[in-house]
């Protein structure tokens, strides 16, 4: 059995292993919720997990699942739990919904787990090459891209393959993998995805620190950054672009209007930091390239 499900304890692991091949092929995520049955989610279907296991989950079972997922070592995953997730080897992310333990105004960890959302990370070979061909067809020559989409539209998967494709073309690439999802090192150094021959990975580094270190010591041609968030991330990307380093980044946004509501980022886009913006959706499955805005088109359209 592949995917994040292999890291679950029994009986759930066994029940999932017994699912049909077709279900396995299309299974995207599994959600464990307190007092609810375990639900499986595909691209256009939802099913309850059948089998001989417990029908709905209680608190100790949720705690047990989380303990097993973190190898009984919460202390090694506190930085991730503080942000509401843990990453498994292979880059699979588990979202953790629970009660925040706050100390000195800062979330220290999560206890009393109410929900776990296991998402499968995939490698989709050729997705990156396909996008690059499309960009070339639109006259986009530079290598700085911003991929935007709502959650679950394949941003990270496309980013991963773009990284591999560009790296294998000889572009010296550094991946700032704050959540261990792009390279799939799992936070504790598990087996990872193929990110290309010329790629270095800064695993677990906060984006601003990772970008600064990459610029200072790794001499990259290209930085790969997933899910730009606070202003500090945007400022670090700006610093990289001013330094002449290309950046391929992703961000949660469903449209250009969403993007425009993020002042720091909108200004960065207006300043021409990205050669193209790519909007993804799930219309024809995750990773559907809905629209591409080359920099020239953005300039003609006016502000982002």
């Amino acid at each position: 059995m592949s995917g994040p499900w292999q890291y679950l304890p029994n009986p759930w692991r066994q029940e999932i292993a017994q699912l049909s091949e077709e279900t396995h092929r299309t299974l995207e995520e599994i959600r464990f919720r307190l007092g609810r049955p375990v639900l499986l989610y595909g691209p256009d279907w939802i099913e309850a997990l059948a089998g001989d296991g417990p029908r709905s989950l209680d608190g100790p079972q949720m705690e047990r699942i989380l303990a097993v997922l973190v190898d009984h070592s919460i202390y090694a995953r506190v930085d991730e739990l503080r942000q509401g997730y843990v990453t498994l080897p292979g880059g699979h992310r588990v979202g953790v919904a629970g009660r925040a333990v706050v100390a000195n105004g800062r979330v220290e960890t999560v206890n009393q787990v109410y929900g776990l959302n296991m998402r499968r990370a995939r490698a989709v070979p050729e997705a990156g090459a396909h996008l690059l061909r499309r960009l070339a067809g639109l006259g986009v020559r530079g290598g700085s891209l911003l991929l935007l989409s709502p959650p679950r539209c394949g941003k990270t998967t496309l980013l991963r393959d773009l990284c591999r494709t560009l790296s294998d073309r000889g572009v010296r690439t550094v991946v700032i993998d704050e959540r261990s999802e792009i390279a799939g090192l799992g936070g504790v150094g598990g087996p990872g995805f193929d990110l290309g021959l010329h790629t270095d990975v800064l695993d677990g580094w906060p984006k601003p620190d990772g970008i600064a270190v990459a610029l200072r010591v790794l001499s990259p041609d290209l930085l790969i950054v997933d899910e730009l968030g606070p202003d500090a991330d945007v400022a670090a990307v700006r610093q990289a672009r001013y330094g002449g380093v290309d950046v391929v980044a992703t961000i949660h946004a469903g449209s250009m209007a969403d993007l425009a509501m993020r002042p720091g980022l909108a200004e960065l886009v207006d300043a021409g930091a990205f050669d193209a913006l790519v909007l993804l959706s799930r219309r024809l499955g995750p990773g559907t390239v809905e629209r591409v805005w080359p920099r020239t088109a953005l300039a003609e359209d006016g502000r982002a």
Binding site: A67, H72, S73, I74, Y75, V78, E108, T109
Partner: peptide, 10 residues
């Protein structure tokens, strides 16, 4: 208690 809290407590 082992494995169930932050490193300092461990």
């Amino acid at each position: 208690v082992l494995g169930k809290s932050v490193a300092g407590y461990q």
